[in-house]
């Protein structure tokens, strides 16, 4: 059989990519590209207005996503994707702001920003690609690295307790918490489409292989072996208590939608508080814009 080269119809992901930057730098078997596929399929399914969408990434392998997608995107400093996105969201509440970054960026150097954004319930959609290690800098132990794993900074195995990210963000106050692996492409795509309809701090953790630094050093095979492991050992438990979904080296991976609740978000609380203390002296900038005849904000019900 001959190999077919690309011809119309085009790949659905193609119009979301900066094709001049392809091929990307991610290793063979890395799961980040798979998450980008799911993300772009979710954008199509949820019919997101691309003019009102911004992607913010930090530093790391998954931070590269901001540079590869042909959307309004920002590649920020290490760990500061969430503060940057918070500012973006507050200055322009009409934007859908997606934070697309890795575990080292969001949970390690940006750990404080993560919990405080969840506490304030800022309307951000956080997608955390968790490969359980600092991949771009050479495979050092990250706060998410489970026990008995060989890394470049723990050559005899890690021994400290790792972060259980769904539990952390739920405790901090996130309104939507889910975990999927790169094997669960359809579920992941549906989950991403779902968080666009969900006001408040939404968090999706995606377990992803790092064949070069994590799996290879631990003799766990390549990317494909890891995907087979995800297929075999992951168990869907929607609504599972997040305290019981911690990860270990070769054990079961509990996936699913863990938390879906409603809380007033940061802007709503701020506007209410300002109205209460300032009364008629407070003018909501978004509502003021609507009165001047800019229709977009009104459609989204921001100034009701």
């Amino acid at each position: 059989m001959s190999v077919t080269t690309i011809a119309p119809p085009a790949n659905p992901v193609e119009r979301f990519l900066r094709t001049d930057r392809m091929p990307h730098i991610w290793c063979p078997g890395c799961g980040i590209g798979t998450t980008v596929n799911c993300f772009t399929r979710a954008l199509i399914d949820a019919k997101i207005d691309l003019d009102h969408l911004a992607i913010v990434s930090g530093i790391g392998c998954s931070g590269r996503v901001a540079g590869y997608v042909r959307l309004d995107s920002f590649h920020t400093t290490h760990g500061r994707a969430i503060p940057f996105a918070t500012g973006l969201k507050l200055a322009n509440p009409k934007l859908q702001v997606v934070v697309y970054s890795g575990d080292g960026d969001l949970a390690a150097i940006g750990g404080n920003h993560l919990i405080h954004a969840a506490r304030r319930n800022v309307d951000l959609k956080v997608i955390c690609v968790n490969n359980l290690i600092y991949a771009m800098t050479g495979g050092q132990t990250a706060p998410t690295t489970p026990g008995q794993v060989v890394t470049s900074t723990n050559p005899y195995g890690t021994f400290d307790t790792s972060f259980n990210l769904p539990h952390l963000v739920e405790a901090a106050g996130a309104v939507y918490v889910a975990r999927w692996t790169t094997y669960h492409v359809r579920q992941l795509s549906r989950a991403i489409a779902e968080i666009f309809q969900k006001p408040g701090f939404s968090f999706i953790e995606i377990i992803s292989p790092c064949p070069t630094l994590y799996q290879r050093r631990n003799k766990m095979g390549d990317g494909l072996d890891t995907m087979k492991y995800y297929k075999e050992k992951s168990k869907v438990k929607n609504g599972a208590p997040t305290s019981e979904v911690g990860l270990d080296k070769q054990g079961e991976i509990i996936v699913g939608k863990f938390v879906d609740r409603a809380r007033p978000d940061y802007r709503e609380l701020m506007v209410n508080q300002m109205h209460e203390s300032l009364g008629s002296r407070f003018i909501d900038p978004v509502a003021a814009e609507c009165e001047e005849g800019e229709p977009q904000g009104c459609e989204e019900g921001l100034c009701s």
Partner: peptide, 18 residues
Amino acid sequence: TVLIEVERCKACGFCVEF
């Protein structure tokens, strides 16, 4: 129909396996 862009492939084998 399945369409393949050969030059971008890094042979991870995900498509073949799944």
